[in-house]
Amino acid sequence: MLLQVEDLRKRFGRRVAVDGVSFSLDVGEIVGFLGPNGAGKTTTMRMIAGYLEPDDGRVRVFNIDVAQDRARAQQRLGYLPEGAPLYGEMTPWTFLRFIAETRGMSKDKARVAVRRAAQDASLGEAIERPIESLSKGYRRRVGLAAALLHDPMLLILDEPTDGLDPNQRTSVRDLIRRLGKERGLIISTHSLEEVEAVCTRAIIINDGRIVADARPAELAAREGGLEAAFRTLTGGEKAA
């Protein structure tokens, strides 16, 4: 099992962000995290990636408890934070070298890893230009390359296609599909069409709880389309 999440909970002050989330993930699965804004998707992903500590519950990556042995768990996963924050004054090349070396790779190993990840994320010529001069699509790809550097089996990607144009979206989706064949992926997205296109499994989160966990086609068949399922399960119907 790549990832086991057991009864994860997190509150910020009085607001409960994640309220008892459990699921597990295996190789070959691409899970689409769906849910309205503020449902708890990002908080859940941050806890899996070891950025936030859960108040309660457990995350295990390759059976390593993230709370107990964070660094060892983080060696085995790749994470793309929401909005793919980067250092604007660096070039993708220097940035990726920095990530690789901070991960503890030797210079030679880092060089090879950066070349491979840059190729996987199709960075092309952009690799030598300052990040602050790159388009949103390229920045997202730099973030993706950073998540892929150490060739992790588990990838947590928070809105990997957000703000990309249709061409860039297609290329990132192709990459996700390709990666998903022999790895486990969790991607959060607002695009239901994306879930249908690339995910083998959809998890819908609302108010910090999982309200559905099924294959996208199954979910769509049950509720008469994925969009209808999303609206029914997340209470959008009442609002509309």
Partner: peptide, 14 residues
């Protein structure tokens, strides 16, 4: 401010 701290803190570095 830039959010890059999230990148740093999810790297396996002490």
């Amino acid at each position: 401010r830039s959010g890059a701290i999230e990148v740093l803190m999810t790297l396996p570095a002490p």
